[in-house]
Design a protein around this nucleic acid. Structure first.
Length: 609
RNA sequence: GGUUCAGUAGCUCAGUUGGAUAGAGCAACAGCCUUCUAAGCUGUGGGUCGGGGGUUCGAAUCCCCCCUGAAUCACCA
């Protein structure tokens, strides 16, 4: 609730008390922005009071409106005038109030961020700590568009929660062991001829990914061969020599076989170098990285402890299980009969190490909705094992990125590669900018490339983040991502325009807007101020709902409002100094809010484009 | 089959705890650059909010039943 809403809310409560002698609940005070077809800025919905008043809605609205105007004769005027339409009381707010709001926004360098009661955003008092896990790649293939969505959501939500007062630790759990890596390793040994990133010029993650695909190809050949000899498919999949070799390799890995370990370490290094580059280009980062190869043994020992405490039980074949039937779920395997760990075991171990490293108050896992069951179970298990954040852990579950013909599948090559996609977006941005001969004259090649990078990535990131994270989204590779309309570049362009205006404004100090002189704020100016006032609510809601999309929508609305204002009204050519000062002040703060909201999305702003 | 999530304009998506005549963008069509950046602005057309009941002053939103799609229910991760 912003300060206008607070004012009107308490005014409305007073009105209801005075008129009907009832203390209104907060939930009964329903405020909304006045729809453009009516006069006014903010609207009180009076339906909740019509029963108390025993009057028609229209009459109640009229009555409350009149009471408000009278009341303010005494207590200073915020509400200027009103009109009542059915059950809706539309209130017009005074210009002075709006100017005051704008000045307050301008004075606040951290506008929109959560502030402690002392006004600081980073008090020395203990922050609640939120750990956000995201990305969490397998090391057998390069990142694709699905990972991009994960990374962008994870990074953005970390920024948003930080703006909402959390101390945030961004973390990544790298899935660096298991049968999938052995497949790549094996294929590389058999068919690689010693190929390295250096010798081939391929990024390490792509090189490894190629061998993962190669494994699958050869494996399928073997299956087909076995089946042609009369073996059934099920058996053929198990008996194919390549699969047996891969499993043997995994056993050697677990037994610390020096050769296997050395190969594993070398190939992982290649992958990490590739990932690092992709992360850097995407603009995401981590405060602490965990590796599954270091956590899975922790998980096993945690499970052993749970076994000792009676939280879990062992079956005759030696496998360890958790009985979740009391929680309405099934029984869950934690250790295989051969003693090896499963995914769940590793997540428990990772949680343990993390909790040793940080005083976690809230744990957030940014993981696709295909793993909802897994996290439901993990939450219960961590709680049983005594992790304080277990019960309340957040699985930030997001939807899949689908292609027109369905899901992306690495092994079948139907993936949109992250690196290629970024290349394409940046190249597209560069191409488009070539047609814009106007303002980009005289800039260097490097500057032009840097703008294209920001704009291309801005288009990509906004395209992904503007969709409600919970929903599946569609990406059609045949249609390029737009640079016009409701897009990142549209908002970046709005920002760049403002920067251009501010550069041209001869003075940098235009805060001397004199409110004492009554002056009429134009409708489009007022709409902009009101929109700016909504920013803190957008930041807070985005945090509560775990939805960067809310900030996208907000930034888009603000940019639309500004462009309309910019089209209709002159800024630096305005002869009236007061009006000009107000418009410059407005422009500067629109730019500020666009920039900070985009920063929370992980999108950079170009100063010109 | 059980559970969970989704279904809104030709396409991609918005739509706060139920509020006024359901909104954007793209695509289509028609206008606006000798004037602060036209990646912009303005306008036109386009809807059985999957279907049917119910709750009430009021339902895209809440409840029930169906239809469709997705995910999941592994000694995979």
């Amino acid at each position: 609730m912003n300060s206008l809403e607070q004012h009107i809310s308490s005014l409305a409560k007073s009105a209801v008390k005075a008129l009907y002698n009832v203390d209104a609940e907060d939930s009964q005070i329903q405020l909304q922005k006045t729809r453009p077809e009516f006069e006014g800025n903010i609207t009180l919905v009076v339906f909740p009071f019509v029963k108390l008043a025993r009057k028609a809605p229209q009459a109640v609205a009229q009555e409350i409106g009149e009471w408000m105007l009278n009341e303010q004769m005494v207590n200073g005027q915020i509400v200027n005038k009103f009109n009542a339409v059915q059950g809706f009381l539309n209130l017009s707010i005074s210009d002075a109030f709006w100017v005051e709001q704008l000045k307050a926004i301008d004075a606040d360098a951290n506008y929109g961020r959560f502030k402690y009661p002392n006004g600081k955003i980073n008090d020395q008092m203990v922050h609640p700590l939120m750990m956000v896990e995201y990305s969490s790649p397998n090391t057998n293939k390069p990142l694709h568009l699905g990972h991009v969505r994960n990374n962008l959501l994870g990074y953005s939500i970390a920024q948003i929660q930080e703006a909402n007062g959390w101390k945030v630790v961004k973390t990544n759990i790298v899935n660096d062991r298991g049968i999938h890596i052995c497949k790549s390793m094996l294929a590389w040994l058999k068919f690689g001829n010693g190929e390295t990133p250096e010798s081939s010029g391929k990024k390490g993650d792509h090189l490894i990914g190629d061998y993962y695909v190669r494994f699958d190809k050869e494996y399928k050949k073997q299956i087909a061969e076995l089946m042609s000899k009369g073996m059934d498919e099920e058996t053929a999949k198990k008996e194919a020599p390549l699969m047996l070799e891969a499993q043997e390799m995994l056993r050697k890995w677990e037994a610390n076989d020096p050769e296997v370990r050395a190969l594993w370490a070398k190939m992982n290094e290649w992958v990490y170098a590739g990932f690092d580059e992709t992360y850097r280009r995407l603009g995401v980062s981590f405060d602490k990285i965990y590796y599954e190869s270091n956590t899975y043994l922790e998980g096993k020992s945690e499970v052993e402890k749970g076994l000792a405490s009676g939280a879990f039980y062992r079956r005759e074949d030696g496998s360890v299980w958790a009985d979740l039937t009391k929680d309405g779920l099934d029984e869950k395997l934690l250790l295989r009969s051969d003693g090896t760990s499963v995914y769940m075991t590793q997540d428990i171990g990772t949680a343990k190490l993390r909790f040793q490293d940080y005083p976690i108050d809230k744990m957030v896992y940014v993981v696709g909705n295909e793993q909802e069951y897994h996290f439901k179970v993990l939450s219960i298990l961590l709680d049983r094992l005594g992790f304080p954040f277990g019960k309340e852990l957040v699985h930030f579950s997001y939807g899949m990125v689908e292609l027109p013909n369905g899901k992306m599948k690495s092994r079948e090559g139907t993936v949109v590669d992250a690196d290629e996609l970024m290349d394409k977006m940046i190249a597209d941005a560069r191409e488009i900018s070539k047609d814009k001969v106007n303002t980009l004259q005289g800039i260097t090649e490097d500057e032009a490339n840097e703008i294209a990078r920001k704009v291309g990535l801005g288009a990509l990131k906004y395209f992904i983040l503007k969709v409600d994270p919970r929903k599946n989204m569609l990406f059609n590779p045949a249609e390029s991502i737009d640079f016009n309309g409701n897009t990142g570049p549209f908002i970046q362009y709005t920002y760049a325009r403002i920067q251009s205006v501010l550069r041209k404004a001869e003075t940098s100090d235009f805060r001397n807007v004199d409110m004492s002189k009554s002056r009429n704020i134009e409708e489009k100016e007022l709409a902009l101020i009101q929109r700016l006032c909504e920013y803190p609510t957008a930041v807070r809601t985005a945090g509560e709902e775990f939805s960067p999309a809310i900030l996208c929508n907000y930034a888009y609305a603000l940019a639309c409002d500004f462009n309309s204002f910019y089209h209709d009204l002159s800024i630096i050519n305005e002869p009236d100094e007061q009006k000009k000062a107000l418009r410059l002040l407005l422009s500067r703060n629109v730019a500020k809010v666009l920039r900070t909201s985009f920063a929370l999305l992980g999108i950079e702003m170009p100063e010109r484009m």
